[in-house]
Design a protein around this nucleic acid. Structure first.
Lengths: 133, 133
DNA sequence: CGGGATCCACTACGATACTG
DNA sequence: CAGTATCGTAGTGGATCCCG
């Protein structure tokens, strides 16, 4: 993703944003965020380790980073229980839940068109003229 | 993004894909792809330089890379006219056009909720306990 | 348990040339 | 015009160790 705090140009004036969907992409579709949101959405409120186990291959460091980002953006709520051992729970916020129909739409497109993309790739790779251009 | 051609794990077996929207993200929402698709969609078939000028700040090298990827995935059609000087035109394919309602949905979510995200960020940054954790 | 701190590796990206 | 080539860099992710 592009870290909003260190980005040189503010979001509003970035010329690339003649495209109105770009800002959403930065927020919702940076790496690991969709698996995190999806897991949170389908399994409800859960602890750090549960997320870590369910998402598989994600390292705790990255999981923490992404959860912080999502918390900062108001898509996820973090609850800290000062116990021994400590317990932290994550859940989707109302704002995060508002993404649900979008994700459903996305999943639907995937179901219908993902095979077409793969066929296009195979066709492209099989064409000699593409390799030697 | 993750370059599809050099990725070690094939898409189908990647454990991260308990989330059905991840593969779509790799294809459609990698960096620069949404501005490219958006420009192609709103201005129709156009040449390399036109894209380059309209997207602003993108370098020809990166534009080429992304266009190749989109062409390989079947979302964009490239037409080469062997003339002097050479002329190349890009346009959205039928598959690419099938993303239009998705993009509209995305733009709608942005219009409604982007300010909420920014307010959440301000609130998070203003909270001292977040900085000194 | 839920991280933070540190070090390292990769590579995508940007800038600057240069060509058919 | 439409790229390719080369170089340099910075942002991320992985691995490891450690702490409250």
């Amino acid at each position: 993703m592009t870290d909003t705090r260190t980005r040189t140009t503010p979001t509003a004036t970035d010329p690339e944003l003649a495209c109105p969907v770009s800002p959403v992409v930065d927020i919702v579709f940076s790496r690991w965020t969709t698996p995190i949101l999806w897991t949170l959405h389908t399994h409800g409120r859960q602890r750090f380790v549960e997320l870590e186990r369910r998402i598989a291959r994600i390292t705790p460091k990255v999981l923490t980073q992404r959860l912080r980002q999502l918390e900062r953006d108001g898509l996820v709520v973090r609850t800290y229980h000062p116990e021994v051992p400590p317990r932290v729970e994550y859940e989707i916020s109302a704002l995060g839940r508002s993404l649900a129909p979008l994700f459903a739409h996305l999943a639907e497109w995937a179901a219908e068109n993902l095979t077409k993309v793969e066929r296009a790739r195979d066709a492209y790779d099989a064409d000699d003229t593409n390799g030697s251009r």
